[in-house]
């Protein structure tokens, strides 16, 4: 077996186990951690495909930022596991139909090579080829409008999140740090000059 194939199967095994543990582990924090492992392993597999920009971006964005905030929320929530599991059997038929559909779709897409869907092979490039440059050039020339649209949609998301948190008036009393840092000593106190009293 070629070394690359071995690495692929090794990573895939970890990825499958981690994916299964995401849905089977009892503790939601553990589930989130297994999802982190799954992302990290997936980035390794992408690295095998020479998609180093995507692989690193996956770790940077999903592992480094999204999952951290996810963990924040999961840790803060008071999750009652028994209530979460309550409707498991009644939802099972619907869930399994969706799962089967997803499996069928993935077989069609991922088996594209086998069914002859792929028109060209994945291009193999040398180590000196910069993936980042290629992606950047395409994003800012050929796909500039979709790219800008995606950024505007993300911007709307940011504005919406800020607007949601600011909807109600703030009840708690707090001093604005931006006002505080501009305070000068002379705003707060005066130095008075008192003439010394004369001795009789």
């Amino acid at each position: 077996m070629e070394f690359k194939t071995f690495v692929f199967y090794f990573l895939s095994a970890i990825l499958v186990v981690a994916g299964l543990r995401v849905i089977t582990s009892r503790n939601p924090v553990h589930a989130a951690l297994f999802l982190v492992l799954a992302f990290f392993t997936a980035s390794g597999i992408w690295m095998l495909l020479q998609a180093e920009f995507l692989a690193i971006a996956l770790v940077l964005i999903y592992v480094g930022a999204v999952m951290v905030l996810f963990l924040f929320v999961v840790m803060m929530l008071d999750i009652n596991l028994d209530r979460l599991r309550e409707g498991f059997w009644s939802y099972l038929p619907l869930g399994s139909i969706i799962a089967l559909l997803m499996v069928a779709e993935m077989v069609l897409v991922l088996g594209g090579n086998y069914h002859g869907l792929l028109e060209t092979d994945v291009p193999q490039t040398g180590a000196d080829h910069s993936n980042v440059q290629a992606v950047g050039r395409l994003l800012f020339t050929h796909y500039v409008y979709p790219f800008e649209l995606a950024s505007v949609i993300l911007l709307v998301g940011i504005v919406a999140a800020v607007a949601l948190t600011q909807r109600e008036r703030r009840q708690s009393k707090a001093v604005s740090p931006s006002q505080q840092v501009f305070v000068k000593a002379k705003d707060r106190y005066r130095v008075l000059q008192m003439p010394a009293e004369k001795k009789d």
């Binding site: 180093e52 920009f53 690193i56 971006a57 940077l60 480094g64 000196d128 080829h129 910069s130 993936n131 980042v132």
Partner: peptide
């Protein structure tokens, strides 16, 4: 090539 991204 992408060493800065890797570090980040």
């Amino acid at each position: 090539n992408a060493s800065l991204l890797y570090i980040m």
